[in-house]
């Protein structure tokens, strides 16, 4: 949302009946940016598929590589398309908590499942 706001300084944000020609330029600017993001997303998808065909010696490294590309892809979508890069502090705080608890859920669960008592059938 803030991209648009900065792109049209001086006009009240989306006041009805505002000068349409003044917006047309901004719209095309915005459209171009979206196109770049879309192209970048397509590249990331291509890269992931390409990476999955690389010769490999075990899946761990390859999965990490592909997921890294996926993270870049997710960053593009979240950052630009969801406007997360220019969001309010409130939203960041909220997502920060969520990220922390998600990390706790996944990290602690996986750690707990692999920290089995020594000398049992699990270990």
């Amino acid at each position: 949302m803030d991209e648009l706001k900065t792109a049209q300084p001086g006009t009240a944000r989306a006041a009805a009946g505002a000068d349409p020609s003044g917006h047309a330029v901004d719209f095309h600017q915005y459209l171009r940016r979206c196109l770049y993001v879309f192209l970048a997303v397509l590249c990331a998808i291509g890269l992931m598929i390409f990476a999955s065909y690389l010769p490999h010696y075990g899946w761990a490294a390859k999965v990490a590589l592909i997921l890294a590309v996926a993270c870049v892809n997710a960053f593009l979508v979240a950052g630009f398309l969801m406007h997360l890069l220019s969001e309010k502090k409130l939203i960041y705080t909220l997502l920060g908590f969520t990220a922390f608890f998600f990390a706790g859920l996944m990290g602690l669960t996986i750690y707990a499942m692999h920290d089995m008592p020594v000398g049992t059938v699990f270990h």
Binding site: L4, D26, C34
Partner: peptide
Amino acid sequence: GTLNTVVLALSAITTLMAWVACKIRQ
């Protein structure tokens, strides 16, 4: 699968464009 991925990526752009169109009242 790839086709679906591209379809969704494209729809993400169009949904954003729809919002921008509302913003500029078109």
